[in-house]
Design a protein around this nucleic acid. Structure first.
Lengths: 338, 338
DNA sequence: GAACTTTCCGCAAAGGTTTGCGCAAAGCAT
DNA sequence: ATGCTTTGCGCAAACCTTTGCGGAAAGTTC
C-alpha cells in the first residue's frame, strides 16, 4: 500500500487552522490574510503537497484526461500527431491517454468502453481500418462527451474533424508519375470505407483523367494495411500481362512491403517501376532507393485536433468544423527517371 | 459539461432502497437477498451504470493506473513491450498510461511528476538516453510506490528489472562477423551510462578476445541514438585509414542511419562492410540488403515487467528480482559474405 | 457608548462509493 | 409466552477538496 500522501487536513492541523483556510490560502483567496497565505504556501511546499485529483474530480466531475485512440503506434505519423495533441492539451492542464486499437474494431470499442469507465473528458480518434459501425461513437455523441476525429474520420456532419488533402495529393502523385514517363499507373488502396482510401482513389482517377490515361481496374488493388496483404496486392500487379510501370500506396508501410515484393520479383525501382508512398516515414530515406512520399503536417494535425476538442467544450451546439490540411510531395529517387 | 451520469443514488431511489443496499447488491453481498440482487443488477444494466472511479479512488486510494515511461514511441520494440505490459495489466483490471520521454531526461522527470500528480499506482520505466541522475526514481522508491525497470535499467539493487542478454548477443554478433571473414569489426555504441551500451560493448570486447582479434579503440564509436549522430559516428569509421569491414550498432535505427552513410560513401553492404543491428525492427526486412538483427522477446519483456510490478504489491520487502531474457540473432543478407 | 461595517477566519454540505454496525422483523427453542 | 438467533435491510462515517455562509473580533462612524 502506498504511504499516506499529504492532504489539506495535515497542513491544516500542523498550522492550527481549518481545512478551508488552507484550501483558500493555496488559491490566494481574498478572504485569507497575506500573512496566512505565506505560511500555508511555505508549509505546502515543504511537505510536497499536491492536490488529490480524485477528490477534485469527484467534486468537479473532471478528470482532466483526454482519450486518444490511434490504429497504430509504430509510425512517426501517429507519434507526431500525438505530440501535437499533447502540446495543446498540456497547455490546458490536461493529460492524454493513448490507446492503440491495433487496426481492430473490437479493440477500438473496448478501448472506448474502458476510457469511458475511466471518465476521460472526451476523445480524439483515428478510426481502425475495420471500423464501419459507428454506434460506439454515436453513444459518445449522445452522452454529450467531446469527440474529434483526425485523419481517418466519419460522421462529419456531427463531429469536428481534421484531415489531409488526400484527393489533391493522389492527383499530384499521378501527375508526377506521368511527368516521369509512367503510363501504366497503379494504386494500392486500403479498405474502401476509409475516407483516406476513397479520397486517394478519387484523386488517382482524377489524375488519370487529367493526363488522358484510361482507368484500368486491374491497376487498382486493395489491401488491408498489413504488410502481408500489401505484398499480395503488389504481386497481383506484377503478374499482370502488362504490369504497371508506376505504383503508389495508401501509406509508406504498404509501399515498403511493395518494395520488397518488387525486389523479390527481380525488378528494380525506379528503373522498372516508379514508387511513391504516403506519410513520409523516417525509413523513406533509409530504403534504397529513397522513397518519394507525401509528407503530412502531422504535428499540426494533432494541434488542430486538440484545438477543435477544446473549442467543443466552449461552443456546444455549433455545427462541427472540418479542417483539411495541406500535404506536400517529397520527391526522392524512387519516382524519378532520368 | 457532461450529462449527469447514473449513480448508486439514482438506482437506489428508483428501487426504493438505500445506497448501501445497491452497492452491496451489485457486489453479491451475502447480506442482500437474491431477489433484491436480481432487481438491482437488472436496473443497473438497463441504466448503463458504471461505478465512478473518482469516488472509488478517493475511498480506496486506488486509481488502477500504471504509468509506463518509454524513451521512444516509434519502434516495434517499445510497441510490443507495451502490448505485453497491457495484456498482464488488463488481466488485473489496470490501465496503462504511456508517457514517452523522447530520450529527454527533463521530459522523463516531468512525465513522472505528472503521473505522480495523477496518482498512478506505480511505474514501469525504460530510461531515456540522457538519464544519469536517478533521484526522481529514488523519490518513488522512498514513497514506497511500485517501480520496475525494463531494457535500460538502473538501481538494480533496489528495483526489479527485466533486460535482455546484451553481452551474449554482442559477443555472438562478433563471432558471426568473424565467421564471415570480417577482421576489422566496429561497434557503434550509445551513451556509456546505459546498461545496454555497456553490456554490448563488453560483449563486443569478449567476442574480439574470443576470436583472437585486437581491440582497436577507433573501432568503438559512440552516438546519442539520434540518426544524425549515428551518421556521424559511421562517417568517423569510414574515413579511417583502415576502415572496418563489419559494423554493428546499438539498435536498428542507428544501423539504418549507418546504412545510409555507407551508401553515401559509395560502399556496399555486405560486399564492403557487413552490418548488424539490434531489436529487429520491421524495416530490417524492407531495407536492401535485408538487415541481420538481434531479435528480442519484446512481448514477453512487457509481460515479465508487468508481472514483476504486481509481485511488488504482493511481496513488499523482498530483494528485487532481475530477469534476463534471451535474444536471437536473425541472420539476413547484410552480414553474410558468400 | 452604541450601531454598523469590515476582516478573517471556521463549519459543514456536497460529490459517489464502501462498510462497520445497528435495528426491526421473522424464525426457533424452551 | 419469552428469550435468543438469524435475516435483510439502512444509517452514517470516511475518503479529499471546494465553497456558501455564518460569526467573532476589530475598526469606524455618529
Amino acid at each position: 500500500m502506498v504511504k499516506h500522501r499529504i492532504s489539506l487536513k495535515d497542513i491544516a492541523k500542523e498550522l492550527g487552522v481549518s481545512i478551508s483556510t488552507v484550501s483558500r490560502g493555496l488559491r490566494d483567496h481574498p478572504d485569507i490574510s497575506d500573512e496566512m497565505i505565506v505560511r500555508i504556501k511555505e508549509l505546502a511546499e515543504l511537505r510536497n503537497y499536491s492536490p488529490n485529483p480524485m477528490a477534485m474530480g469527484l467534486l468537479k466531475q473532471r478528470t482532466r484526461m483526454i482519450g486518444v485512440i490511434v490504429p497504430d503506434l509504430v509510425t512517426h505519423f501517429f507519434s507526431s500527431v500525438i505530440s501535437g495533441i499533447e502540446e495543446v492539451a498540456k497547455e490546458k492542464g490536461y493529460f492524454v491517454i493513448v490507446s492503440p486499437s491495433n487496426e481492430s474494431f473490437l479493440k477500438e470499442k473496448e478501448n472506448i468502453g474502458n476510457l469511458m469507465k475511466a471518465r476521460v473528458e472526451g476523445f480524439i480518434v483515428c478510426l481502425s481500418q475495420e471500423t464501419t459501425d459507428y454506434s460506439h461513437f454515436e453513444q459518445i455523441i449522445e452522452a454529450e462527451i467531446p469527440l474529434v476525429f483526425f485523419d481517418r474520420v466519419c460522421l462529419k456532419e456531427k463531429v469536428p474533424s481534421v484531415t489531409a488533402d488526400s484527393f489533391e495529393a493522389a492527383r499530384g502523385i499521378t501527375h508526377h508519375f506521368y511527368e516521369n514517363n509512367a503510363r501504366r499507373i497503379a494504386y494500392i488502396s486500403g479498405p474502401d470505407h476509409l475516407n483516406i482510401s476513397d479520397e486517394r482513389r478519387m484523386g488517382y482517377l482524377q489524375g488519370l483523367a487529367d493526363c488522358g490515361l484510361e482507368f484500368r481496374p486491374e491497376y487498382l488493388q486493395k489491401c488491408d494495411l498489413s504488410t502481408a496483404s500489401a505484398a499480395m496486392a503488389t504481386r497481383r500487379l506484377l503478374i499482370l500481362p502488362a504490369p504497371p510501370d508506376a505504383i503508389f500506396g495508401i501509406n509508406d508501410t504498404v509501399v515498403f512491403a511493395a518494395m520488397k515484393e518488387i525486389r523479390n520479383f527481380g525488378l528494380t525501382v525506379p528503373k522498372d517501376i516508379l514508387l511513391v508512398g504516403f506519410t513520409d516515414e523516417f525509413h523513406a530515406t533509409v530504403v534504397n532507393p529513397m522513397l518519394t512520399s507525401v509528407m503530412h503536417p502531422t504535428n499540426e494535425m494533432g494541434k488542430v485536433a486538440a484545438s477543435l476538442f477544446f473549442e467543443l467544450t466552449d461552443n456546444v451546439g455549433f455545427p462541427p468544423k472540418s479542417v483539411e490540411l495541406k500535404t506536400k510531395l517529397v520527391i526522392r529517387e524512387s519516382s524519378v527517371r532520368k
